[in-house]
Computed example of a mutant assay.
Amino acid sequence: MTTDDNTGVVDINKPFRFEGNHFKRWKQKMLFFFRMKNVNFALTTDKPTVSENAENDEKDKQTNGLEAWVENDFLCRNFILNGLSDDLYYYYNSNKNAKEIWDALQKKYDIEEVGTKNYAVNRYLKFQMTEDKSVEAKSHELQKFAHEIISEGMSLDEQFQVAVIIEKLPPAWKYLKKFLRLKTKEFSLESLITSLRIKEEARKQDQ
């Protein structure tokens, strides 16, 4: 929830302030917010012109359209700017209209998020469990990487995540790994990690 800076009233529909991370999520929330406020057409409609040669009725129509667009653009532009951190606000405040600010943000952060997604996926795939930490701790660490991927807008099926944890088990677990592979569909993430904790405690007692 965020608070309107002018009224002090909490607006539950107002998105969080964008500080340079999670652009896709912020962008989706902003687009919904624009629709709620009926200002979204400023992002898709170029500024209308008024023809000096138009008939009076047509000229009045064009003038009304221009005035409506100017008002819409003013509101949309300030909604965008107020949705940015202070540093980003001052940087993008120099752009002329809402569409220019929005396009500039997309050009920069949509591209950057592709790199962020690739980095998160690479960390998830290359992650290896070692003997220096408990399997439970390493499983939770792996899940943090999975949550990063999901927060970037990609989906990870729970059964896939279960299979990945099993495959990432350290070499000392190779015999148990073979058994767990046969039981993959029977586990949820929570039940798998609980099972690994129990088996790890039993292994310690045996040792």
Rank of each mutant, 00 (worst) to 15 (best):
Y124P: 00
G8Q: 11
F32T: 13
I111V: 15
Y90L: 09
K204Q: 04
K183S: 09
I198T: 10
L88E: 00
V135S: 10
D46S: 13
F16V: 05
K174M: 14
E112G: 04
W26A: 12
G153W: 05
L182H: 03
F187A: 06
E113A: 10
N53I: 03
E158L: 15
N64G: 01
E112Y: 02
E67Y: 00
K99L: 13
I149T: 12
S195G: 12
I101F: 09
I166L: 07
M30G: 12
E167T: 15
F74G: 03
V162M: 04
A137T: 08
I198Y: 10
N82I: 07
T130S: 14
T7I: 09
T2Q: 07
E52T: 08
L169W: 02
R17A: 06
M36W: 05
L31H: 04
L105I: 14
L176N: 11
F33G: 10
N122Q: 01
F23E: 10
E152S: 12
D73V: 08
P48W: 00
I101R: 12
W102D: 09
E141Y: 01
W69H: 00
S51T: 04
Q128G: 11
I165H: 00
M154P: 11
A42M: 08
L88W: 02
N38R: 15
I165S: 01
E136T: 08
S155Y: 09
V70N: 05
V39Q: 13
K24P: 05
F23I: 09
T49I: 04
D103S: 08
L156H: 02
S195R: 09
K204E: 05
K29L: 07
D86L: 03
Y90C: 11
L84R: 02
K107L: 12
I198M: 10
Y119Q: 01
Y90G: 08
Q128R: 10
E136M: 06
L189G: 07
K183M: 15
I111C: 15
E19R: 02
E19I: 04
E55L: 10
A120Y: 11
N78G: 04
N53L: 07
K144S: 03
R77F: 06
A146T: 06
I166P: 03
V164D: 07
M30Y: 02
G8W: 01
A98K: 07
R77G: 06
D46Q: 07
M30N: 05
P48K: 01
L189I: 12
K117M: 06
V9W: 12
W102C: 08
Y92L: 02
L31E: 06
N82T: 03
F32N: 05
A172R: 13
E112V: 11
K99A: 15
T184K: 01
L192F: 01
E100N: 13
K24W: 08
L196D: 05
T63M: 03
D60F: 00
F187P: 05
W26I: 04
I166T: 02
V135C: 11
D206P: 04
K168S: 15
I101S: 14
T49C: 00
N40H: 09
Y175G: 07
S51H: 02
G20H: 03
L75Y: 12
T44I: 15
D57A: 03
I193C: 07
Q106Y: 02
K144V: 15
N6Q: 08
K96C: 04
H140M: 04
V70D: 08
Q106I: 13
K133L: 04
V70A: 06
H140C: 04
T116H: 08
E190V: 13
